[in-house]
Amino acid sequence: MPEGDTVLQTAERLHSALAGQVLTRSDLRVPRFATADLTGRTVLGVRARGKHLLARIEGGLTLHSHLRMDGAWRVYAPDERWRGGPSHQIRAVLGNTAATAVGYRLPVLELLRTRDEEKAVGHLGPDLLGPDWDAGTALRNLLADPARPLGEALLDQRNLAGIGNIYKTELCFLARATPWLPIGELPAPTAALLVTTARQLLDANRDRPVRTTTAGARPRGSTGPAPLARRASENLWVYGRAHRPCLRCGTPIRAAEQDGRPAYWCPRCQSGPTP
């Protein structure tokens, strides 16, 4: 599932291509909205709310989409070949004279009144990359269920919006806790720092083509300055690095499933229960 920074980048690409332009092409390929015609309307803007995308359109309409695991929006020039997938995977096409946005494999696509956007996103907690970000509210949300495993609490978009499985895994490593540690067992300063770090990580990666959380990992035993991670596998502390040495201590990274998703941790650097 895309992380909040990826969704924000998608929103910015769509906004750049569509905002302020009159739609000359509109095709919503979902049964409920297949007859909706948005041509002739101006796109007012596209914004991200957590992992949701909201394209606001003249006339008080909003096209709401969510990428979930496999969805994607691609922007093409007028004469460019569409390469996002086979045509039967296309769920939406929005075009103007200069660009065409094509939505592939979108599991959520609905046209609603802009005034009703809260029905789609009102359940979300503070957006880590949004103007509504509030660290105090996010922390209170996370700690409302002290027995809940840390990893599950971080992924719950009702607590704070924008964290996916990659950031969940990396944040647990930075907090030196396994994803299965009850969040209420985190020391209060660590829990507060976790929320601040989450915001810092997503903000640092909002414009990066390659996500990085290591900020310059140093091999075990090195005494010199920490070199910048050069290989893709070193851009992240533990995610996707099963059986490889921990970038901090050298211990092999372990992996297991948590709530249907892969979780990674270092058995030496992180404390707490494991499967």
Rank of each mutant, 00 (worst) to 15 (best):
D70G: 14
L67T: 09
G59Q: 01
S87P: 07
L63K: 01
W82A: 14
R74L: 15
L67A: 13
R83D: 12
G85V: 00
Q89H: 08
G103P: 14
R91C: 05
G71S: 08
L61A: 13
V75N: 13
R81C: 10
W73Q: 09
R91A: 02
L109H: 06
W82M: 11
P86Y: 03
P107Q: 07
R83K: 09
V102Y: 10
L106G: 13
A99S: 11
V102G: 11
H66K: 07
N96K: 02
H66N: 13
W82N: 08
E80K: 03
Y104E: 09
I57Q: 03
M69C: 13
G59M: 01
S87T: 06
D70N: 14
G60W: 07
A99F: 05
L106R: 07
T100R: 06
L94G: 03
E110D: 15
T97A: 07
E110Y: 00
M69V: 10
A92N: 00
P86E: 02
H88E: 04
L61D: 10
T100P: 09
R83P: 08
E80L: 03
P107V: 04
L61R: 10
N96G: 02
A72M: 12
G103V: 07
A77F: 07
V108W: 10
A99R: 06
R83Q: 12
W73D: 11
H88Q: 02
R74N: 15
Q89R: 05
A72S: 15
W82I: 08
L106Y: 13
A77P: 13
G71V: 01
L67P: 14
P86A: 01
R91T: 02
Q89S: 03
A77D: 14
I57E: 08
T62V: 06
N96T: 02
V102F: 09
L94V: 05
E80N: 02
L106I: 07
A72W: 11
E110F: 00
R74K: 14
A98H: 01
N96A: 00
G84Q: 02
R105K: 07
P86M: 02
G84H: 05
Y104Q: 10
I57R: 05
G59H: 04
R74A: 15
Q89L: 03
H64E: 09
M69S: 13
T97N: 03
P78F: 07
R91V: 00
H88T: 04
G71L: 04
R68I: 00
D79Y: 04
R74E: 14
G84M: 01
A77H: 11
G60H: 05
H66Q: 12
V102A: 11
V93Q: 03
R83F: 10
H66W: 12
Y104L: 07
L106A: 12
V108M: 09
I90R: 03
A72T: 06
L63S: 06
A77T: 10
V93L: 01
T62D: 09
I90W: 00
H64S: 09
P86D: 00
L94E: 04
T100K: 02
H88K: 06
D70Q: 13
G60D: 07
H88G: 04
E80A: 04
P78R: 01
P78L: 06
T62A: 10
Y76S: 13
G103L: 08
G59R: 03
H64V: 10
G60A: 08
S87V: 04
R68G: 11
V102E: 08
R74G: 15
G103H: 10
L106E: 11
Y76K: 00
T100F: 05
P86V: 05
G59N: 04
